[in-house]
């Protein structure tokens, strides 16, 4: 469905020295610098797949999404989405995609959402019966039927985002770009949006490209992720293999029957202490030494329960970024 090869985007940005003199000087001469937002990335996304794009602010996630949705032109490289070159913006291509931007309203602010949906029906030429069926399904699933006739600007952030999702999905797109769909929402609304995306994907099977800063979004929704930093891919593969490929450590958590602690020398020999409380000990140990460390803990402490887990994915990803910048710790 989506094929990308060596795609790059470089922005030319103007720089201005601070202060009044800088402003005056910039009237006559401006310094420009090239900012490489995306650098030679390649990617394939299959039908029905949910791909998570993970990266810090300015990593290049949104630029990549904008190129794939046809909003901006790349500096170099190739991409086809549903057999179309996105930035040529053929109508047949645009009828099959949808873009939801968590930070930018798509619907018409002064109008009730229902009016905006009617306009979208005209724009996408959705047959009347299909429009009614889709609207009823989406509004009921997202529990916003009673808000359809309220001006968009009078809705809460969560309700507005639900309306944005309806607007994006009314025409049954084959590819959905979700750019931070849960940003700024409370936990209940975040959960509702996540549940909806999962159920929608089950029933309609579109390919979804999701960017989010919330690891819970990524963990709940994506089986495959791309980690992107400074415009380049650091990882492209299954979510559940991020930890095993990028960390040589596991986390042992021991719940204790009574307050106890390990002698400092023993603890230092196990690995890195993550957390120590009266009834709890958590240490990060090398994979190769997990069995030995677990045996030591079981021998030295009154253990009620013991668990050996991969590191939290958010922590692993954070460490990947940190190590890229300052080197391994």
């Amino acid at each position: 469905m989506i094929h990308v090869r060596d795609l790059s985007k470089t922005y030319t940005v103007h720089e201005k020295a601070p202060g009044l003199m800088g402003s005056v000087r910039s009237l006559f001469a401006r310094k420009t610098v090239a900012r490489h937002a995306v650098q030679g990335v390649s990617l394939h996304v299959a039908e029905g797949e949910i791909l998570g794009l993970v990266g810090a602010n300015g990593a290049g996630k949104t630029t990549l999404v904008k190129m794939l949705a046809g909003i901006i032109h790349p500096t170099s490289g190739e991409a086809t989405v549903l057999g179309h070159i996105p930035w040529q913006r053929e109508n047949d291509f645009r009828r099959q995609i949808a873009l939801v931007m968590g930070q930018k309203a798509q619907l018409w602010w002064d109008l009730p959402a229902a009016d905006g949906f009617l306009l979208l029906r005209e724009i996408y030429r959705i047959p009347e019966a299909r429009y009614r069926e889709n609207l009823a399904y989406l509004a009921e699933t997202l529990d916003v039927t009673r808000h359809l006739h309220v001006q968009v600007r009078r809705l809460s952030l969560g309700e507005r985002m639900k309306m944005e999702l309806i607007a994006a999905l009314l025409h049954d797109p084959k590819i959905v770009f979700l750019d931070e769909p849960t940003i700024g929402l409370d936990l209940t609304a975040q959960r509702a949006i996540r549940e909806f995306i999962l159920s929608y994907r089950e029933t309609r099977k579109p390919a979804i490209i999701l960017t989010s800063h919330y690891m819970e979004d990524i963990e709940r929704l994506c089986k495959r992720i791309v980690i992107i930093d400074e415009g380049a891919f650091l990882y492209d593969g299954p979510l559940d293999q991020v930890a095993s490929r990028h960390t040589s450590q596991k986390v042992i958590t021991a719940h204790l029957e009574r307050p106890a602690s390990l002698p400092p020398a023993v603890l230092a020999g196990l690995g890195t202490l993550v957390k120590q409380e009266e009834y709890l000990l958590q240490v990060r140990v090398l994979r190769a030494r997990v069995a030995e460390a677990a045996a030591t803990i079981l021998r030295e402490l009154p253990v009620a329960d013991l668990a050996i887990d991969e590191e939290d994915i958010g922590t692993v990803i954070e460490r990947i970024f940190r190590e890229r910048r300052v080197g391994p710790s």
Binding site: I71, N91, L99, M101, Q106, I123
Partner: peptide, 12 residues
């Protein structure tokens, strides 16, 4: 303001 984005993805 970047509001053009929403129109560029709409057919037409």
């Amino acid at each position: 303001q970047g509001g053009l984005n929403r129109y560029l993805v709409l057919p037409g």
